[in-house]
Nucleic acid binder design. Structure first.
Length: 576
RNA sequence: CGGGACGUGGCUCAGCCUGGUAGAGCGCCUGGUUUGGGACCAGGAUGUCGCAGGUUCAAAUCCUGUCGUCCCGACCA
């Protein structure tokens, strides 16, 4: 390919819209252009890199025994109603109406479609297991599109769905995908790691997310360097002991705390109640029902855990206007000792189990209770792990201190069980002629997000540092004189056909630009290898061999082609 | 949706506070000089200052509304 023939609109300045490096480079290197928030046009270089990622995924999915299909992007809403996700996906689901005012959904993911297919086509254990995958556009009505391709309204996803006859079979399918994912990200040149994850609205009971460590990531990951425990904060636990029991005061005692509405204020004079001796009482509205949540004063509620434990579809903190008629006091004086209306669930965090000598709100503005015992004085409906883990707490597996870091989620594997197969009738007949729902798994990779993660992880002050496996072109030939018939141009053209014939992907910068411009552009776009051909070095029978991010090397003209070929193949081999 | 910031040529921004009818750099076009790290000189094109109201003799500038973008939070590949 000739540079002048393709389209690589590079930008010298950082676009005002882009905050994080990968987003800036996506724009500056001419890989994509924004149509509007969350919607991007892929330009030739971006498309090539994206296709490379997609093809690596295809190869590994195929290797793992999955089979590629392509499902409709426009889906009937009735299957969404049948699965129950028409409700749970809610606003994230794009809906469109046709001329008859009938409603359709734009595919955000395809469990419903594939399960419908399975229901119709997979009827015998002899046909299982099967794992279907596709690579294609997905739509989500994101509340806030962000960071370029990282969180877009429309994005490319690889989604796969496995159907097994047994739970063990499903676990094996899961494991295969887990291993395939590990290979996929390694081949994309990414340092990735898997973490235990919350399953969210997709459902299921076993799940890992694949993470790329990056400060700009949207996830907090808790991990242990000693034993490899790693989990999304939404899921992470720690081995902190429950609150120590103390000698219990005689009875619950009410005391005045005028103006005290925070845990912090109660720790100060004249009260001096340590935060870890307070019970924090939160009121949430979960699926329209008020729920009290009790945590230790120094703990934070983990909303993901709250959602998971309660099975709520939607939850939010209650407003003061909702709380006052419910408990008789304003936030800051709430508690669960008295005045808890019948039927209102009281959820307590495990860390409060057995706690006594605690202080909590009296459900009366300006008053608190002391000498409170969880067991004796509070009617707890359910005990759950609801707190958010912080760095330094003991690892749940080996008790060494946990760490927390930010990361980008690029893939997610779920064991779904029979949630969808039951609702959408994806059953099969087993060896004994018994009908049973298929045991499913689903597996996603954000292809566009992975592409951006590659850039986020591989860049320097000059531009992108592509791994050869993902680079839009592997080699950039840079003749410094482009006059037809000139020695540099002739050699560049000869090398172009020679390298291309050897299966390499080569771009020839035939633009009549000054050397500085061509060098800067090739580094910005990030081609892994540049071969510089100038008249001076050519006079000595040499050309320049310059790996991106590496040192420049003078190479004899007759040696350059084999050297380039060997280099590219060598780099590629490292990523297998 | 809540909180914050910002909308001025293709891009990055100044001008706004203190109203007087729009500027710079980059990019683009023409000619010339250059030619190993984002060249130089000369000339040129490109703006209903996001949009709609209002105040005023006069609005990019002040006021109101609205739309859009970006950042923080809820959502997720």
């Amino acid at each position: 390919m000739r540079w002048s023939q393709t389209f690589i609109p590079t930008l010298k300045e950082v676009p005002a819209d882009a905050e994080i490096v990968s987003h800036q480079l996506l724009l500056r290197a001419g890989l994509v252009r924004k149509l509007t928030g969350g919607l991007y046009t892929f330009l030739p270089m971006g498309l090539r890199a994206l296709t490379k990622v997609a093809n690596i995924i295809r190869e590994e999915m195929d290797r793992a025994g999955a089979i590629e299909v392509s499902m409709p992007l426009l889906q009937p809403v009735d299957i969404w109603q049948a699965s129950g996700r028409y409700e749970t996906m809610r606003d994230a689901l794009y809906k469109v109406k046709d001329r008859a005012q009938k409603e359709w959904a734009l595919c955000p993911t395809a469990e419903e479609v594939i399960t419908t297919l399975a229901a119709n086509e997979l009827s015998s254990y002899k046909q299982l297991p099967k794992n279907f995958y596709q690579v294609g556009t997905k739509f989500r009505d994101e509340i806030r599109p962000r960071f370029g391709l990282m969180r877009a309204k429309e994005f490319v996803m690889k989604d796969a769905y496995s159907f097994d006859t047994t739970d063990e079979g499903a676990m094996a399918s899961y494991r295969k995908m887990y291993d395939a994912y590990t290979r996929i990200f390694a081949r994309c040149g990414l340092r990735s790691f898997a973490v235990e994850a919350d399953t969210g609205v997709i459902g299921g009971n076993h799940s890992h997310e694949f993470m790329i460590p990056a400060e700009t990531g949207e996830n907090d990951v808790v991990y242990c360097e000693a034993c490899n425990y790693a989990a999304n904060v939404e899921k992470a636990t720690s081995a902190l002991p429950p609150t120590a029991a103390r000698e219990l005061g005689a009875v619950v005692e009410k005391f005045a705390t005028p103006g005290v509405v925070t845990i912090e204020a109660l720790t100060k004079d004249p009260y001096k109640v340590a935060a870890n001796r307070q019970i924090k009482t939160l009121v949430y509205i979960a699926d329209s029902q008020p729920v009290l949540v009790l945590l230790r004063g120094d703990d934070q509620l983990n909303e993901a855990k709250f959602m998971a434990r309660t099975g709520a579809v939607a939850a939010r903190p209650a407003t003061a206007e909702e709380i006052v008629p419910l408990l008789g006091a304003r936030p800051g004086s709430l508690g669960a000792v008295v005045n808890v209306p019948k039927g209102v669930r009281v959820l307590a965090d495990e860390r409060l189990r057995g706690a006594n000598d605690m202080t909590t709100g009296a459900n009366e503005d300006g008053f608190h209770f002391r000498n409170v015992s969880m067991e004796r004085d509070i009617q707890v409906t359910d005990w759950f792990d609801l707190r958010t883990v912080s760095a330094g707490e003991p690892c749940p597996k080996c008790a060494k201190p946990l760490k927390i870091r930010r990361a980008i989620e690029v893939g997610h594997v779920f064991k779904l069980g029979t949630k969808y197969s039951e609702k959408l009738n994806a059953t099969f007949l087993d060896e004994k002629g018994q009908r049973a729902p298929a045991v499913m798994g689903c597996y996603g990779i954000g292809v566009t997000r992975t592409l951006q993660a590659v850039i986020e992880q591989g860049n320097d002050k000059d531009g992108i540092l592509w791994p050869v496996s993902v680079a839009p072109y592997q080699v950039c030939l840079t003749p410094l004189v482009v006059t037809p018939g000139s020695a540099p141009m002739e050699l560049a053209e000869k090398l172009h056909s020679e390298l291309t014939a050897a299966g390499l992907e080569v771009i020839l910068d035939d633009r009549d630009e000054r050397p500085g411009v061509k060098f800067k552009d090739s580094e910005l776009v990030g081609f892994p290898l540049r071969v510089g051909i100038g008249e001076k070095s050519l006079a000595k029978g040499e050309v320049e061999f310059k790996p991106r991010g590496g040192a420049l090397e003078a190479v004899k003209v007759e040696d350059i082609a084999p050297k380039v070929i060997a280099w590219v193949r060598g780099e590629l081999a490292k990523l297998r």
